[in-house]
């Protein structure tokens, strides 16, 4: 589904990623771990198409297409979803209104009809239930005044609504207490199937107890320095990041 080939990225002339190679197939869960500043968040932003990052070399192939030149919304419309580490506030726009706009934008990009209101509503209810989201929450302004946990839950709720092929969860576990973490992890697990893939970006192993990865990659100074199975995460937890340095 996703092949990253020798990816080099800089921000304002400063190199952050120095030759990333990664291959993700449908049905897989990959975890990318690494100390602060190793380039984890940069990797997710680049896959999602944030123009603040400059790709200096390499390719990102998604569903047999090089997406390097595509705009963020085009990538999203093709099924790439990123759960933000710091979700953005949009005052005055409710969660419901926002997700409606997003879904209909995606449908329009595929030349499909708008989703009828009743079906939309039913789907919203269903997914909200999955993430134990109160209906009052849906009529609040997007991320405005949300707690850390609410913001992250809202991200996974949007993921559930948009049904992406590839989900990149950037530090989704940060700022969550254990109950909220379980709800979020449970949501992600239910949404997983053999046709989609998930990339988890995380500093800690904690999340990986709840969403079990097929592969674990360790990122350091902009390179993947070690890859392995889920046991690698435990090893990291025990030995700390100094071990790979």
């Amino acid at each position: 589904m996703l092949t990253i080939d020798n990816l080099h990225v800089s921000v304002e002339g400063k190199p952050i990623l120095n030759g990333i190679n990664l291959n993700v197939r449908a049905g897989e869960v990959h975890a990318i771990m690494g100390p602060n500043g190793s380039g984890k968040s940069t990797l997710s932003s680049v896959i999602a198409g944030n123009e603040a990052y400059e790709v200096t070399k390499g390719d990102i192939i998604y569903k047999n297409e090089n997406i390097i030149e595509l705009a963020a919304e085009e990538r999203a419309q093709k099924g790439i979803f990123m759960s933000f580490q710091y979700p953005v506030e949009i005052p005055g726009i409710t969660v419901t209104n926002f997700i409606k706009t997003a879904i209909n934008s995606n449908l329009r990009a595929r030349n499909e009809e708008k989703m009828p209101a009743n079906i939309m509503l039913k789907k919203i209810r269903e997914k909200a239930e999955l993430l134990e989201i109160d209906s009052k929450f849906l009529s609040r302004s997007l991320n405005e005044g949300f707690s850390g946990g609410e913001k992250k839950r809202n991200e996974i709720f949007q993921m559930a609504m948009l049904e992406p092929s590839l989900s990149i969860l950037d530090e989704t576990d940060s700022g969550l207490d254990i109950d909220a973490l379980k709800i979020v992890a449970n949501g992600v697990n239910k949404l997983k199937n053999k046709n989609n893939a998930v990339i988890l970006i995380t500093h800690y192993q904690r999340l990986l107890d709840h969403i079990v990865p097929d592969y674990v990659h360790v990122l350091h100074e902009g390179r993947i320095v070690k890859s392995g199975g889920k046991e690698l995460a435990h090893e990291l937890e025990e030995k700390g990041y100094d071990w790979i340095k």
Partner: peptide, 23 residues
Amino acid sequence: QIFYCNQRGIDTEQAIALIVNGF
């Protein structure tokens, strides 16, 4: 804000309309 909307598949023009509407 615009990037966030883009990432959800909403194009820039529509993102602006949305933000202005919220405002």
